[in-house]
């Protein structure tokens, strides 16, 4: 069994990961893209760093191509969890009152009350 990569590649990947960390800190404190913009750039840099680790340190670049599915399939499932919960994110701590409940409360507040 021989290692498919070499020390130079590993050293360069490590330096790229450290540079990515410095860039992430710089973007977080020195660049104002708005909160969503900074979050997007921060996560994008993290994705690039994670890809470098997976491809070179974890040797996925040198494995059979279909093995990539072993990583991507769970990532897709996580994305489904994330995006399917996004409708709940706009509440900002407000108590959610469904339109049906609001209607009943509105009726109850009227003279004569709800029936």
């Amino acid at each position: 069994m021989s290692d498919p990569a070499n020390k130079t590649i590993y050293r360069n990947v490590m330096l790229a990961l450290m540079a990515g960390t410095i860039i992430t800190v710089f973007v977080a404190f020195q660049v104002n893209l708005g909160r969503p913009g900074n979050l997007f750039v921060g996560i994008l840099i993290a994705v690039v760093k994670a890809t470098l680790v997976v491809l070179f340190f974890m040797h996925l670049k040198y494995e059979k191509r279909w093995w990539l599915g072993l990583v991507l399939f769970p990532v897709v499932l996580v994305m489904i969890i994330l995006f399917s919960n996004f409708p709940d994110t706009g509440l900002n701590g407000e108590e959610f009152v469904s339109p049906a409940v609001e209607k009943v409360e509105h009726r109850a507040a009227k003279p004569g009350g709800a029936r």
Partner: peptide, 23 residues
Amino acid sequence: IGSEIMMFGAFIAVYIVLRMSMP
């Protein structure tokens, strides 16, 4: 590792959703 991605991925997804809902 795939099963671990789902576990940590779920934690992170829940954190993002809670974070966006927090005052």
